[in-house]
């Protein structure tokens, strides 16, 4: 089976994020970069399928030079090869998906994994656009997956229920927490990763321009939380009444 896992390098969930003064993005200095956690579920699922049914796992990433470490991490976990498209800084979801699609079209593929969204921009669009561009079915936010007879059966939780969705292969699956527990890279895996091939590409190699359909106009830190209010007084009944009044009239929550 030819398995593809798309990975994005994002700031560590525990990194302290500072927005640049001019609002053009975040301050990157001093940030620790990691593989997007949802993409990690995708990589792990691809590796498990390969271990069960045979095949190869190719990791594809759109990101600056530093994203190579994330590709190597996936290779250290057990993927066979990588494709790195390096010159699409701040690409929107469409450009990212276009680059991924162009790279993936050059490789035979049965199943493509993406994280259900990236934890940095939270757009949750790349997987879907990618499926459209590849012209294959997509199943998003998957927590359980079975593959048999050139078909997938995927479980997708929705409000109050779960859907069991069947789709023909090739297709795109976006991974949700719960799909699996990603493994840690092993030392032998890390040693081998160094020698595994990674194709470094430019967007132009695929005829993709850096003229994005959507651009971030401005990035702003969330507004700081207004200070709390302490209701003064001795009589609990009066204080409770005052609280109800404030919740209704000021906070407008009841």
């Amino acid at each position: 089976m030819n398995l593809i896992a798309c990975v994005k390098q994002v700031p560590d969930t525990e990194a302290q994020i500072k927005v640049k003064a001019d609002g053009s993005g975040i301050e990157e200095a001093g940030i620790k970069w990691v593989m997007n956690p949802y993409d990690e579920f995708g990589v792990e699922e691809a590796l498990r399928l390969k271990e069960k049914a045979g095949g190869t796992v190719t990791v594809v990433s759109v990101g600056p030079a530093r994203a190579m470490e994330t590709i190597r991490t996936a290779l250290a976990m057990g993927a066979e090869k990588g494709v790195h498209i390096t010159d699409l800084d701040n690409a929107d979801a469409f450009a990212t998906a276009s680059a991924l699609a162009a790279a993936i079209k050059e490789i035979p593929f049965d199943l493509v994994f993406c994280g259900q969204r990236a934890i940095d921009d939270d757009s949750a669009q790349v997987g879907s656009i990618l499926a459209e561009l590849l012209g294959v079915p997509q199943v998003t936010i998957v927590t359980k997956l079975e593959v048999a007879d050139n078909k997938i059966k995927a479980v997708k939780p929705i409000e109050g229920a779960q859907l069991l969705i069947e789709a023909s292969m090739p297709c795109v699956v976006t991974a949700q927490k719960g799909l699996n527990e990603p493994r840690y890279a092993s030392l032998p895996g890390i040693m081998k990763a160094k020698k595994k091939p990674v194709d470094v590409k430019k967007a132009a190699d695929y005829g993709i321009s850096a003229d994005f359909k959507a651009n971030v106009a401005k990035m702003m830190p969330p507004p700081s939380r207004p200070p709390g209010k302490i209701i003064q007084g001795d009589d609990p009944a009066v204080k409770a009444a005052e609280l109800v009044k404030l919740l209704r009239e000021e906070a407008k929550v009841i």
Partner: peptide, 9 residues
Amino acid sequence: EMFDIITDT
């Protein structure tokens, strides 16, 4: 590069 992945892991 491998040393960095070792630290990271």
